[in-house]
């Protein structure tokens, strides 16, 4: 079977670092907030680890941004700007996930290095990477130094509001990751997409299945 090199090494490294950061941040974040319900580690340790991996995530995010902006591949995140076409392709993709997949229909989207994401993925990842993750980073930074960012915190409604946004986004990321991981198992075999994110290669769709 023909294989395509879908995930270049820098993207794979970025992805797994990002995944690790997310995992640690979610666990330590839950530990900080729900001290009464879980005692995986000391509160102070949880805060320190959370702060450390928070900065790691920020650096990783910046690397992702610079990498995709410099090589111009940021395009893969941008959905079709033609509204009608976009709508059509999204409906088609949604129909597949909600109906066709059960009937064994083929995925209407065929990934390639320059066209990696289907329209729904583009919308999800773009809002994630451009809106939600930056928002989480900013709210996390504000909480990291309350005194230093006191003015900004005041402008956005106080530390309670900032914390609420941070926690809600965290909950969203947990939900998102759950769905994300579920979707990775929907390949021809459950491990196919996950393996691709390790090796970089994914089996190419047989042209006949189009």
């Amino acid at each position: 079977m023909k294989q395509i090199y879908l995930h270049p090494l820098p993207v794979r490294i970025w992805h797994w670092v990002n995944a690790g950061c997310f995992f640690v941040l979610i666990v330590t974040g839950l530990q900080i907030r729900y001290r009464d319900l879980m005692q995986l580690m000391d509160f102070r340790a949880a805060v320190d680890v959370h702060n450390f991996f928070g900065f790691a995530l920020i650096i990783n995010f910046m690397l992702w941004l610079v990498y995709y902006l410099l090589n111009g591949k940021i395009r893969i995140y941008i959905p079709d700007l033609h509204p009608a076409r976009l709508l059509r392709s999204m409906v088609r993709q949604a129909r597949f996930y909600g109906y066709g997949i059960f009937r064994g229909e083929a995925n209407p989207h065929h990934p390639s290095p320059d066209h990696k994401f289907n329209p729904m993925q583009q919308m999800a990842y773009l809002s994630l990477m451009v809106i939600l993750l930056p928002l989480q980073i900013v709210s996390g930074l504000l909480l990291w130094d309350l005194k230093g960012f006191a003015v900004l915190i005041g402008m956005v409604g106080g530390v309670k509001a900032v914390s609420s946004v941070h926690v809600l986004l965290n909950m969203f990321f947990i939900a998102f990751l759950y769905v994300h991981i579920y979707l990775t198992t929907l390949g021809r075999s459950p491990m196919e997409h996950i393996r691709a994110m390790v090796t970089g290669f994914e089996d190419a769709e047989e042209q006949t299945s189009h």
């Binding site: 064994g104 083929a106 995925n107 065929h110 289907n118 993925q121 991981i181 021809r188 299945s209």
Partner: peptide, 11 residues
């Protein structure tokens, strides 16, 4: 006719 090796979703 539906094919056993099908491509479902991508993550």
């Amino acid at each position: 006719g539906s094919g056993t090796h099908r491509k479902e979703g991508t993550p």
